[in-house]
């Protein structure tokens, strides 16, 4: 961290430097737009690329030797696989509920003039700290003497991730040109057909971004289950990575992190693929 600070200090003093200094520097160093990206590239290198590389290397080291033992341990451990399956299931459930709740909301909001203000209201909880929101949910469930467990976990997941579904959907749906709707009506489509045949397919990029924004964070969360698990034994993938690292099982933890990473890459790949097939039609979805 200190090194970063020094580096940025250096960069700032360089930019703020006297004209003469810049002039002499210009001979071999040009102050182009590229220069301004250096601090970020450095940050990326130190805190994203290097740790990722370390995790990948760590996954292949077992008892000081290069081996696939960590992978074998993970894939033969029934409990870990069940956790993976469970968290996928909860992820899918959360995503489906978010989509079913979020789509109508986004659709109605995009029809309203004051929609933008209302969207802000829906997004507002995002600015409350995640832990506070989760603890508040727990307090609410306890106050209403509702049992903690799967229901509470799902509720909190949906509550936490719903804005991530509504926002891209709202952007996409309100970006759909009204003339498409009129053209469909003109060609004989009633209201339901207009929705099914034009609005729904045209909002596909928003649905995809929404799903990606909700599904991946859901399976990697661990705080929600930690607080709202109650007496049940719901462990998500995030939880088990956390536990593995806490128990100094670095190798297996690294393997699990890599699996997580691969899942993110796969979903991103599908998302960009689907977006390409819809090229030009939606600009809004690119925001996410």
């Amino acid at each position: 961290m200190n090194r970063i600070k020094e580096m940025t200090k250096g960069a700032v003093s360089f930019i703020k430097g006297t004209p003469q200094k810049i002039k002499s520097g210009l001979k071999n160093f040009h102050l182009t737009r590229k220069v301004f990206s250096y601090p970020y590239i450095l940050f990326l290198l130190l805190f994203v690329i290097v740790p990722t590389a370390m995790i990948i290397v760590r996954a292949f080291i077992s008892e000081g030797k290069l081996s696939f033992d960590n992978f074998a341990t993970f894939f033969t451990d029934g409990a870990s696989l069940i956790t993976l399956g469970n968290s996928m299931l909860i992820g899918v459930l959360t995503t489906v509920i978010c989509l079913l709740v979020g789509y109508p909301v986004a659709f109605i909001l995009s029809k309203m003039n004051s929609g933008k203000v209302l969207v802000m209201l829906f997004v507002l909880p995002m600015w409350v700290n995640f832990l506070i929101r989760t603890l508040a949910t727990k307090a609410l469930f306890q106050a209403a003497s509702l049992p903690l467990g799967l229901g509470a976990v799902l509720f909190c997941m949906v509550y936490n991730y719903l804005p991530f579904m509504i926002l891209p959907l709202h952007t996409t749906i309100s970006g759909i040109d009204k003339s498409y709707v009129e053209a469909a009506q003109d060609l004989g489509a009633d209201k339901v057909t207009v929705f099914v045949k034009t609005i729904l397919p045209l909002s596909l990029p928003g649905i995809i971004s929404g799903i990606t924004m909700v599904f991946i964070p859901t399976i990697s969360t661990f705080a929600i289950t930690e607080f709202l698990r109650g007496n049940s034994d719901i462990y998500l993938f995030g939880d088990s990575i956390y536990i593995k690292f806490m128990n100094n099982a670095w190798g297996v933890g690294a393997v699990m992190s890599i699996i997580m990473l691969i899942m993110v890459l796969i979903s991103n790949f599908f998302m960009s693929k689907l977006n390409d097939s819809n090229d030009g039609s939606q600009v809004g979805a690119r925001l996410w």
Partner: peptide
């Protein structure tokens, strides 16, 4: 029983 040709075509991009 009418059909319209729109100013900006409004062809369905999908």
């Amino acid at each position: 029983p009418v059909n319209t040709v729109f100013q900006k075509y409004a062809l369905f991009p999908h």
